[in-house]
Simulated scan of single mutants.
Amino acid sequence: MEQNQTKLRSVVSAIWNGLSTGISILVVAVAALVIAVPAAAGGMPLTVLSGSMRPSYEPGDLVVIRPKDPREIGVGEVITYQVRSGESELITHRVIEKSSATDGSVSFITQGDANDVPDATPIRDVQIHGTVWYRIPLLGWVNDWFTGDTRRIVVPAVAGILLLYALWNVVSGVRERGRERGVAKQGGQVQHTAA
């Protein structure tokens, strides 16, 4: 009976350790994709708020943009640009036409994938923040919630919880192995004494 309980505990422990390790890896990977990778590349994560880029980008998706020289941006790329100087509103649309001026500046005609007509005003190179690098579906809403002061509090708290959880897993694993060795030694002594 005890042997069956020990086996059941071992199986449950292995499943729990596998799930917790998988969740920890997922959390670290998402944090890297949302915070570390964009920061290292000089980019930034943004949340898609409208359906103008459907089906490429849905509202709530997180898109990560990175800087790119406007002269290197081509037709078909998706850019994020500031609508008006001094305002925080950004739009992410696809380049459908590119023009170069004699002074070396470039301008773009953009259009949302879901829109029937191009955007009314050409986009100048100084308005461009970057091109879309990658997207993570639905993570934009979470990113919007974790901004400013919230991010400064939550990120270290989550990191601390994950660290404590990892330490707890290590300690409980060492303890479990010690118990298993103790049971094995006792079992060996009992068999030896009985023989």
Rank of each mutant, 00 (worst) to 15 (best):
M1A: 13
E2F: 13
N4H: 10
N4V: 15
Q5W: 14
Q5G: 08
S10H: 07
S10Y: 08
V11L: 12
V11K: 14
V12E: 03
A14V: 12
N17C: 08
N17D: 04
L19K: 01
T21R: 06
T21G: 15
I23D: 00
S24M: 13
S24N: 00
V27Q: 00
A29M: 01
V30H: 01
V30T: 00
V30R: 00
A31G: 05
L33W: 00
V34L: 05
P38A: 01
A39I: 00
A39L: 04
A41H: 13
G43R: 01
M44I: 10
P45D: 06
L46K: 01
T47H: 06
V48Y: 08
S50P: 09
S52F: 05
R54F: 08
P55N: 07
Y57C: 02
V64K: 01
I65D: 11
R66A: 12
K68R: 14
E72P: 06
V75A: 09
G76D: 12
I79F: 08
Y81D: 02
V83H: 00
R84D: 10
G86S: 06
G86H: 06
E89G: 03
I91F: 07
H93I: 09
R94C: 02
E97V: 01
K98Q: 10
K98S: 08
Q111S: 08
G112L: 04
N115I: 10
D116K: 14
D116V: 09
V117L: 13
P118S: 12
I123H: 06
R124N: 14
R124W: 06
I128D: 05
G130S: 03
G130M: 07
T131D: 05
R135F: 02
L138M: 13
L138C: 00
G140Y: 10
V142H: 03
N143F: 05
N143M: 11
D144E: 15
D144H: 04
F146T: 05
F146S: 03
D149N: 11
V154D: 01
A157R: 01
A157S: 07
A157L: 09
A157G: 01
V158S: 00
G160K: 03
I161D: 00
I161W: 03
L162V: 01
Y165A: 15
A166M: 13
A166K: 00
L167F: 12
W168V: 13
N169A: 10
N169K: 11
V170M: 06
S172Q: 08
E176V: 04
E176W: 06
R177C: 04
G178Y: 04
R179S: 07
R179C: 09
R181V: 04
R181I: 04
G182Y: 04
V183Q: 09
K185D: 10
G187Q: 14
G188L: 12
V190G: 07
H192V: 08
A195F: 14
